[in-house]
Amino acid sequence: MSDISEERVRHLAGLARIDLSDSEVTALTAELAQIVDVVAQVTNAVEADTPATSHPIPLTNVYREDVVTDDVLTQEQALSGAPETDGSRFVVSAILGEEQ
């Protein structure tokens, strides 16, 4: 059985920055518990020494030349989709937490 609790779901929602309502937390707790029970089978499917695959097609040393390209956006383009700007920068509400 999984260890999914409402408290854990709230914690995860905090990490994921989603302000879940109480009813969402309740529903998600039940669904996640059910899902985790199913997906947890992977732990028994592999051995400790099985190598992990993070990329389906193995490549290495894929690099870009150190030159500026025409992908650079104008300030207007950069700000074009923003909910709020001061004309040159993005505006956000007061920040509670500190820089990391």
Binding site: V39, V42, T43, A45, V46, E47, T50, P51, A52, T53, S54, P56
Partner: peptide, 8 residues
């Protein structure tokens, strides 16, 4: 573990 299943 999921990444290992991927290898298999």
């Amino acid at each position: 573990s999921a990444q290992k299943v991927r290898t298999l």
